[in-house]
Design a protein around this nucleic acid. Structure first.
Lengths: 345, 345
DNA sequence: TTTTAGCACTCTAAACTTTCAAGTGCTAAC
DNA sequence: GTTAGCACTTGAAAGTTTAGAGTGCTAAAA
């Protein structure tokens, strides 16, 4: 069976009506509320075809139809007319994001909040990572006589700190020694080279200084690892409770979202596949059981031209695709720009 | 009507049984499972008295009895025999908390997680604050030619950083100027003196240098504010979903917990009232409507002898008081010790 | 060939009824 | 003061009824 223009119109109308009301859509209602010039019986025949084609589902024989995952997919790819945010809305969002601290964490948290509010969904963001990043700068800041803070900046603008405590005083001599080691072995190299194993072999060659240097180098390795790790920020989880499709399994879904590896896995397997447009995973297109009746929409933001992190939402499949897809696109763009600005030296 | 020993025994038995099963407790069940040497009719008479005295409630005439808030209160204060954690459990918790980073945030997050798991409730912790703290040390760490990180350490061991960007190069001269201002006006003073207003008046006296110094001083004010602000960390929120008493209003409760001021208000109005023992607020003893069918148990941890922050749980009134009150006490003590260790110079 | 009116049929949600068991309160005897 | 006994209350669970929405099919109309 092939798609006709009329079938498309009907499918689009059903998807939009269902997204709006949350109730299965009947043939009569379609004829009434939309300007179809055919009778309900005709619509019914077409709907029967659309079911056969896999685009619609019927909760039970005497109910209206709802879109299947495939139906939403067809709608998103072929039928939907997207709604951009108004310039006013864009302006509000822009200033909200810019007036906060320029810390990536803070910007992302705010962006997540905006998204969650806008979509009445959970929003998830990941902190920037760049696997090609190298160590750009390291500082040792004295805090007390035996306490110091190690600061590391990477070429992709990520800045991390860690406090470290030693058993004896950190003299200028020790600090110089530390800087020499850093300069000789780590500046300009990827942070991943700063492993604990590497530190251990290095410590062996330090002789009597090893004892006091070790805590500093361990802290250095820790902070290096921190620059590499992607953190996952979750906002608006409670919004999920207000959707009746999650009435029974809200708990399961929320627990799933807490575990960050699955989400990271999803995000990294969808890098840059859509030439900059958000990725959309609808219902059973999701591979994880816990997400089978959810939709994820997410997009990557770029810092200095490199894809660095992700920003998206998780909600029911019945979600306002036409409005949210462009919004997410806009937000990732803005976040990318803000974080890139940030990086300039 | 006055309390008798037998009434106390019955009340205690009802509270414990109800905490255990979650079902209203009937007179027959009490006689059967506990070794009472009287008949169910007698128990019924006593239970009727306990209702009149306000310690029990009856969901409906044909059901058993459940404790009222007042009943739980009497139990907690007069009847309960507390269960300390075993040395093994204590050891496990201790090492879990110590092996993590010594950052207060991390320790508290971990403690919150442990508590939430242990109680199957939401756990809430607040970061340390000390209103008598003064600025102990300030550093300006170069990050780029026009970027620097302001680091502030307070006398109570709180360390905060903030990145700041200027329009022109941060020369050694500028840095020296910055340190001079800090030393002259702020070291040894409370962080609260570092307000934006103060910075503005100060900037006026700087003449031509004001332009480049201002961003640095603003960042300094920001970081000062950060050392003062109490942050609230929430863990195990999703646990609340698994309690049937929150079936209908889990959303409301979770939204309430996100707003941090009410919680802060509660915590600060219960400072050190119990000479070091956890505070317990049961059901309608809570002033906020959203908490009327919840219980909060929380306790203060001390850093260097000063009460600094709070650590507690929020759950249904039907909660294992006998086990959780000592556990919370233990956790706050350990957290206090770890964070105090941390502070030593 | 496509569309439509008509109608019997299906199914669910909501309202109502029935049944069952748990538990009570009261009375009269111990 | 305590207890056995019993009628009574109540809600949860299971079953029944009803109303309404919506369908699928057929046969006639376009």
């Amino acid at each position: 069976m092939e798609m006709t223009e009329r079938k498309e119109k009907i499918l689009a109308a059903i998807v939009e009506k269902y997204i709006q009301t949350g109730e299965p859509v009947g043939s009569k209602a379609l004829v009434d509320s939309l300007g179809f010039s055919v009778s309900s019986a005709t619509i019914r025949n077409e709907m029967a075809d659309l079911i056969e084609m896999g685009y619609l589902e019927q909760p039970h024989t005497s109910a209206g139809r709802i879109p299947s995952s495939q139906g939403y997919r067809y709608y998103v790819e072929n039928l939907m007319t997207t709604y951009d945010m108004s310039p006013v809305e864009k302006g509000i969002i822009n200033s909200k994001l810019r007036d906060s601290s320029t810390e990536p964490q803070t910007v992302l948290e705010k962006a997540g909040n905006i998204l969650a509010d806008m979509a009445h969904c959970a929003a998830v963001t990941t902190t920037p990572t760049d696997h090609e990043a190298v160590v750009k700068r390291v500082e040792l800041v004295p805090i007390g006589t035996r306490t110091a803070m190690v600061v590391m900046l990477t070429s992709s603008g990520i800045l991390k700190t860690k406090v470290c405590r030693t058993d004896s005083e950190i003299t200028i001599d020790i600090a110089e020694n530390f800087y020499n080691i850093v300069k000789a072995y780590f500046i300009g190299k990827p942070a991943s080279e700063l492993s604990i194993a590497r530190i251990q072999t290095l410590a062996l060659s330090l002789g009597e200084k090893a004892l006091i240097m070790t805590p500093l180098l361990v802290a250095l390795a820790d902070v290096a690892k921190m620059t590499e790790r992607t953190e996952l920020l979750l906002e608006g989880q409670t919004n999920l409770l207000s959707h009746k499709e999650f009435e029974t399994n809200a708990f399961e879904l929320m627990e799933f979202l807490r575990r960050s590896e699955p989400l990271n896995r999803i995000f990294s397997s969808h890098s840059d596949t859509n030439n900059g447009m958000p990725s959309v995973l609808i219902g059973n297109e999701n591979l994880f059981r816990e997400l089978q009746n959810s939709t994820m929409i997410f997009s990557k933001y770029s810092i200095g031209g490199h894809e660095s992190g992700t920003l998206g939402i998780i909600g029911p499949t019945r979600i306002d695709y036409a409005r949210l897809i462009p919004s997410i696109k806009y937000l990732t763009d803005v976040v990318g720009i803000i974080l890139s600005d940030n990086m300039e030296d």
